[in-house]
């Protein structure tokens, strides 16, 4: 079993170190975090709807995909990316190789694979198709047939 990430901070694309807070901590202390520019870690069981009005001051969002069979993260990514147009990074952690295509198309902007998958060709799973049959948050590189 590979090590599961439980990060306390993360470096964003601009190379800034961003402090991360758990979802419950964030929701219970929203005022405290309004000016701090933190990232929020969301687990599948967290109610993403509670985050909607706070997105404008959240630096980035971490979605946890550790549980292979739990698909709630894909809907969470959809809400953030497509429904609410969140401009910050949406990072999938504890990601599985075989689910990259679903994560990326649902709106996840970058990911950290679990250790188990190091050494495999990610392209085969993040970009293994030339066509898609439905609208999604991110269909880049795909011919759309719908």
């Amino acid at each position: 079993m590979s090590d599961i990430l439980e990060p306390k901070s993360i470096v964003n694309k601009a190379n800034e170190n961003i402090e991360l807070v758990e979802f419950d901590e964030f929701i219970n202390n929203i005022n405290k975090y309004e000016t701090l520019g933190v990232g929020v870690i969301i687990k599948p069981s967290d109610d993403i709807m509670l985050l909607k009005d706070s997105l404008y001051f959240i630096e980035l969002v971490i979605l946890d995909f550790n549980n292979f069979d739990d698909g709630r993260g894909y809907s969470q990514a959809y809400f953030l990316s497509k429904r609410w147009g969140f401009k910050g990074e949406i990072i999938g952690i504890n990601a599985h190789l075989d689910q990259l295509q679903f994560m990326l198309r649902s709106g996840v902007t970058s990911y950290e694979l679990l250790e188990d998958y190091k050494g495999f060709n990610e392209e085969d799973y993040s970009n293994g198709f030339s066509i898609c049959y439905q609208a999604a948050a991110n269909n880049s590189g795909l011919r759309e047939k719908y």
Binding site: D70, A77, Y133, A136
Partner: peptide, 16 residues
């Protein structure tokens, strides 16, 4: 059309 739409749908391929 509906079959295609839900074929490897990114959001709904890991349902309960």
């Amino acid at each position: 059309l509906i079959r295609r739409w839900f074929n490897l749908h990114p959001e709904f391929s890991w349902l309960p």
